[in-house]
């Protein structure tokens, strides 16, 4: 599945079943199990339509979680992503409402670039506060979480910010509701983002540095790696991923409010951990992460379709999942 496994096996050894890292496989096994359970609960569940719906809805968390995989692999944590979504989305809508560019297509292009820059800047701020300011990432991003959320509330004056330009709305709608080659656009974007992220994490110098910094920053420093730069860039990647999620989020509702993206940071972290990435850093699994995001959404879907568990228990279920995932991971520590 993931690219890094192939490279390890190609060295010398004959592949045996013992070489398979169960922790990498576990999330996919869990996903398969869920699909079977779902199919037994309700026959409609397994329909392509329903599954595509679930995948589409998981897009925001999945894409944010891909960014979180980098931050967490580098040994850090970003709690501000939910607020960042609200903040960047609000800025983007306000920019489009400002009407500085008359042509809708040109305006949309500028707005997309604007959102990407804003997201990266938010990520950069998180990174610099953590590294240059030498503040624990938990505290640093707890701070920016409050700042981004507060700024959003101020921008919206406690209400909603709505995209007013009908021309842009019309042009922008397909970015969430359209499809490419029969595949809903959000799913295509998830796959594209994940593929790029997997390439960066497993097949580039930077990715190797991220894992080295996360598993032991002293070793990284003594190996001549600029540790703070690697960590800061991971936060910027997280900001970029938030921006991509925003680009999908805005055409969906065309509006944001002070409550946009609340608790998304916890869902993103859950997806990362369920996907098999170690929370203490040093091992990133990008494909596992989107699998984790999909599992979260799927559980909610199954509960909705079943009539023996209340859908109001979805939050409790997701909480239980993260604990179960940790227990399973621990029991699967490779014995050799």
């Amino acid at each position: 599945m993931s690219v890094n496994e192939e490279s390890i096996q190609s060295t010398t050894h004959r592949r045996t079943w013992r070489d398979v890292d169960l922790r990498a496989v576990a999330p996919f096994a869990a996903l398969a199990l869920l699909l079977i359970v779902g199919a037994m609960v309700n026959p409609n569940f397994i329909s392509l339509n329903n599954l595509a719906n679930v995948a589409t809805r998981s897009a925001f968390i999945a894409i944010i979680a891909v960014g979180a995989t980098f931050v967490i692999s580098a040994g850090d944590l970003d709690l501000s992503v939910g607020s960042m979504v609200a903040f960047v989305a609000s800025l983007m809508i306000l920019f489009m409402n400002s009407g500085v560019i008359a042509d809708p297509a040109l305006m949309l292009t500028a707005a997309v670039l604007f959102a990407v820059v804003a997201g990266s800047a938010c990520g950069l701020a998180n990174g610099l506060i953590t590294t240059v300011g030498r503040i624990e990432p938990f505290i640093a991003t707890l701070g920016t979480m409050g700042i981004y959320r507060g700024l959003t509330t101020w921008l919206s004056q406690g209400g909603a910010i709505t995209l007013r330009e009908p021309g842009i709305q019309e042009l922008y709608r397909p970015a969430y509701f359209g499809s490419i080659l029969g595949m809903p656009v959000p799913i295509a974007i998830i796959l594209a983002v994940t593929a790029v992220a997997a390439f960066i994490l497993y097949r580039t110098r930077y990715g190797r540095h991220v894992v080295a910094v996360g598993s032991n920053s002293d070793v990284a420093r003594y190996s001549g790696i600029a540790v703070n730069r690697v960590r800061t860039i991971a936060f910027v990647i997280q900001g970029l991923c938030v921006a991509v999620a925003v680009l999908l989020y805005v055409p969906r509702l065309g509006s944001t409010s002070a409550t946009t993206g609340i608790l998304w940071e916890l869902q993103a972290i859950t997806a990362v951990v369920v996907g098999g990435t170690a929370l203490k850093g040093g091992a990133g699994r990008v494909w596992g992460t989107i699998c984790g995001a999909f599992i979260l959404e799927l559980v909610g879907n199954i509960m909705l379709l079943s009539n023996f568990i209340s859908e109001y228990l979805i939050g409790a279920m997701q909480g239980a999942i993260i604990i179960i995932a940790m227990l399973v991971q621990r029991s699967l520590v490779r014995k050799s």
């Binding site: 060295t11 190797r208 032991n216 070793v219 003594y222």
Partner: peptide
Amino acid sequence: AKGLLLNSGMTANLTLQ
């Protein structure tokens, strides 16, 4: 503590620098 990534394989360690 400062030389090798103990949880990584030989290749990742060898080429890190």
